[in-house]
Write a protein that binds this DNA or RNA. Sequence first.
DNA 1: TTTACAACATACTGAGTAGTATTTTATTGT
DNA 2: ACAATAAAATACTACTCAGTATGTTGTAAA
Lengths: 235, 235
Amino acid sequence: MPRPIPNRGRGAKARGIEESNEPVESVVEILDCAAQCFMEMGFQGTSIDDVARRLGATKGRIYYYYSSKANLFFDVHREGMDRLMKAVKAAMKSNHCGTGKLLAMVEAHALTMMQNIAYESVVVQGVQMHRLGATTPEQRRILDELMAVRKQFEELFVDVLRQGQEDGNLAIRDLSLCAKGILGAVNWMAVWYRPRADDSAEVQKKMAREIAYQQVYGLLRDVSDQVEAYPECRR
Amino acid sequence: MPRPIPNRGRGAKARGIEESNEPVESVVEILDCAAQCFMEMGFQGTSIDDVARRLGATKGRIYYYYSSKANLFFDVHREGMDRLMKAVKAAMKSNHCGTGKLLAMVEAHALTMMQNIAYESVVVQGVQMHRLGATTPEQRRILDELMAVRKQFEELFVDVLRQGQEDGNLAIRDLSLCAKGILGAVNWMAVWYRPRADDSAEVQKKMAREIAYQQVYGLLRDVSDQVEAYPECRR
DNA sequence: TTTACAACATACTGAGTAGTATTTTATTGT
DNA sequence: ACAATAAAATACTACTCAGTATGTTGTAAA
């Protein structure tokens, strides 16, 4: 993405401040406001003027950094995807055992969704948008690139699922379908979850853990009891 | 919704054909095309001309039956919701035992999603749209009404979950969160599922059943083995 | 065959908005 | 003080598109 590195006057560059890959404060503000707007009104329902208004600025500021509304959206998406990736990869590297690793990953995914609901709801919109017809070839290219990362993300889960399957712990017929079920349950949080005033980090973590447990272990209190009571339900 | 009952000339009414609540063929065609367009391009990304083009007609035909794009969307939503309701309520009345009833409901939900993917993707969009700002008060009213039905739908699942909880079969802390997880996994199908040429009714049913099993029973092959191997994972 | 109307098609308007072209302001090096 | 430039604001254009106003046609009752 052609994102200029902003300076102040001619000073910064002249003073030899090297170009950093970290987006500057001004761009971060734009991304935050854009994420919020896209979450609240959707990509198509948000005008650049809406984002500018939330910034307390005008279009000029946004178009100085982004050549189009789509590219702005894509950058928000990229940031949201990065945060998801980092959280889940960190959970993967935990020393949990097979099933525990999966649990940790799903929990991390869910928690990241809640902690970055604006960015992650843009990610979810992006996934849906992929099915829609992206207008220009340029936009389609970027979207494909983003979806490649998204696929990598899903593959993290599929890999762990496969490993559990091979270890004999998990009963899974269709790995992809299974992953879509789990990821769907978590992604759906982008639709219904909005932080409440009393949502402390602990509350969020508990919710994330509960979702994770449910997706991995299901709803049964005690399966050995269950299979007696409902033998026809066992596969 | 002010939907005129179309006739041919002055004949139908004069001939004493009583007004039916069943939408006429022409309206069904409009609904089908609209559902398809909304699925492929989203509500905001679809113009009335797009729908008309797919119909092989012009705007006039659509605006003769619908006073606005939003009302057309809402009618598609209503139809999709009706189909979901019918399927899940039928599954509820099955003579399955507690857990079996839940299984049947989730399976019916998933199957209906696949069999009516265009309409159901509109339903999913509507749920998301509810968070967005609906423009006019009239539209907000209709949307609220639709979401009330949607809530009833979710309550069907919550009720069965509660019953399972009281019977001691299901280990659920937060009924609402649990339902959102299950429904999220199924709703997410609207994003990724598109019928394939080789998707027979049997294949669809197998997929629906697999999703349902996963959501109810989780992924473990054998929990008694599991809790030994991973005692820290048990709650 | 005439009339009345349903069921459209056609032509138009106005509002919103993505993107651009131009101008302004603040800052810094000289 | 002044020149140069980053970081915007302002002003403008072109275009889409929801909704409307009006015209057209086929059909059926009289």
